[in-house]
Nucleic acid binder design. Structure first.
Lengths: 132, 132
DNA sequence: TCTTGACCTTCCCCTTGCGGTAATCTTTAA
DNA sequence: TTAAAGATTACCGCAAGGGGAAGGTCAAGA
């Protein structure tokens, strides 16, 4: 099938499909006219990529997952390790974001938010040492 | 003071300082030899930038904050609006990350993680329709 | 047959926020 | 004097594509 059909059926964009090919995540055949020709197997790979991306894997990590996926002598241990590593990373991001959220809430709470130029937010960002 | 001192005292890198100047976040004087010469006021701006970046603001948002900071006829309402907008955005990111974490946990839990090639993670990413 | 419009192709620039490196001054200390 | 340290500009690179230009193809209608 043509690229736009493959894009639609996979839930990705044609641009993304070309990108994935350019970095050798998959290599669809070419028709006689030079058009990409995606097989059902290619489509499965695209679905795999989309799902893996959706849970946070980078394309490089997706590449590793695809290698495991295509390797019949793989060990499920290796796939699980990739998932757990990603989990650890996401938990770190969650901690960072929660800290930012807390700081932002304190900033917002400290500020009247009115027509006055006096602003505890700007004062706080400046470290309390600025004159304006 | 020279760039490396300003970097050290602000907790930023010299590279970042040059970048901030290149995008006109601040404009330190130049000494006769062409070296940047950071004033105490510049240093305050750098501290401001570092704190704002630390709570999640993009450099473009920092620019808006600096405009308010330097504008004596500002309204604290405007600063608070920027903080709340950022807060909304970060909460959306938190939701996304929590969803990813949930999905990854389910994937990890579903997988034995042993020496066998049978792997529920890879099956699930493939949508249950792949043969391998 | 011609044309029009919808596809497809490759190619290159743009994004964020700097990091790394190179080539080239200037200053400073021995 | 010379060597090291620190400064300057300039360019390339990252992730993961998006946007758009210039041009080839294909299917349908007049």
């Amino acid at each position: 099938m043509n690229i736009s059909q493959a894009a639609q059926r996979s839930g990705l964009t044609a641009k993304a499909l070309r990108y994935y090919e350019s970095i050798h995540l998959l290599s669809p055949k070419r028709a006689g006219n030079g058009y990409r020709d995606y097989s059902e197997r290619d489509l499965e790979t695209l679905h795999f990529i989309r799902r893996a991306r959706a849970v946070g894997f980078t394309v490089d990590e997706v590449r590793s997952l695809l290698v495991l996926h295509h390797n019949p002598s793989r060990r499920s241990h290796d796939a699980k390790a990739l998932v757990e590593e990603k989990l650890t990373h996401i938990e770190a991001q969650l901690r960072d974001l929660r800290e930012m959220r807390g700081a932002l809430r304190r900033l917002a709470d400290s500020c009247a938010g009115d027509e006055s130029p006096e602003c505890a937010i700007l004062d706080s960002l400046c470290g309390g040492v600025c004159d304006g």
